[in-house]
Amino acid sequence: MNRTARPLRLLMCRPEHFAVSYEINPWMDRARPVDVGRALAQWEELRRTLQELGHTVEVVEGRPGLPDMVYTANGGLVTPWGTVGARFAHAERAGEEELFDAWFARAGLGPVHRPVEVDEGEGDVLTAGEHLLAGHGFRTTRAAHDELARVLGRPVTSLRLVDPRFYHLDTALTVLDDDPAHPDVAYFPGAFDEPSRAVLRGLFPGALVTDEATAGVLGMNAIGDGRHVVLSARATGYAQALRDRGYEPVPVDLSELLRGGGGPKCCVLVLRR
C-alpha cells in the first residue's frame, strides 16, 4: 500500500532540567542517576529526525524544578475544535500547567480551556480520524472525558487502562494514520480492560495488534504521520510489523528519557489548529 505522509506541527521542550527526582510511574527510579548530556543529545536527534521528515518543531522553554516538562504531550490538547490545558494528577508536575497555557496563548492557539477534572493532555487523548480516543485509569479521569466532549463539542471514546506501566494512552496505542477516511492504529491489548479491547476491535477491526515485547520497551509510544513512524530503536519487532504494513519505521534512541517513563511520542505535542 502507498502511504502518504502529512506534515505535522509539533511542540517540544529541551530536557535541560531533566532528572528523576521523584517517582510517579513504574519506569522511574531515583537510585539510577540521569545523564542529562546524553538526554539532550538524544532529544536533539529526535528533533532533527522530525525536521528532516518535513515536520515543524517549535520549542517551549522549560524551567528548573520541572524535570518532566520534556514530555510535552501531557501539556494540553490542541485540536481544530479548541485547546484544552492540562491539569496534572501529581503535584510535582502542576507547575507546568501555566507555562503551557501561556505558550498556547502566545502562539495564537487560545483561548485555552482550563480543565476542572484531571486531564493530562495528549498523553491520554489521541486523535484518529474523527475519533477522540481517551484513556483513563491512572492519570486522566473518566469525568475529564465528559468535560472534553462538552468543551470541544465532539464525541469522546473512553478506554480504560489497567497496567500501571502503561499509565497514559500514548504508551499503549499509536495513531499510525489519522486520515479521517482511513484512520489506522496499533495497540497493545494487555494495557486495556476487555470492554475497551472490544471497543477498539469495533472501531478499528484492521488495527495492528502488538505484543508484550513491543509494549515493554514503550514501543507503542511512537509518532505516526501517515507514512513514517518514529519509534523506539528497541522496538525491533514493531518496526518489522510496520514495514509489513507499508509504513516506514524511523528508529530513535531515547533510552535516557525512558528513565522518566517517556518515549518519542511523550516528547511531542501535536498542534492541530
Score class of each variant (00 low, 15 high):
R63G: 00
V59T: 14
F100E: 10
W43P: 05
V59C: 13
A105H: 11
E212I: 03
W43S: 08
D244C: 03
A41Q: 12
E58D: 14
N25E: 11
R272L: 04
D253S: 08
V230F: 07
V59K: 04
D170I: 04
G216W: 00
H228T: 10
L159G: 07
C266K: 11
E147N: 02
T210L: 06
L271Q: 12
E147C: 01
M12C: 14
Y247L: 06
Y167L: 06
G54C: 12
D119M: 15
E130M: 00
F100A: 12
P33Q: 09
G85P: 06
T157M: 00
G262I: 11
E130C: 00
L254G: 12
L132T: 08
K265Q: 12
P67C: 05
H136V: 11
T79F: 03
L169N: 06
L231R: 07
T141H: 03
R106T: 09
T72P: 05
N221G: 00
L218Q: 05
D253Q: 05
V156S: 02
M1Y: 13
Q42W: 10
A186V: 08
D184G: 00
D211V: 01
L53P: 02
L258P: 01
R106L: 11
A233P: 01
A5C: 04
N25A: 12
H131W: 09
H145R: 14
F188L: 06
E120H: 13
L53Y: 06
G95M: 03
A186H: 08
L242D: 02
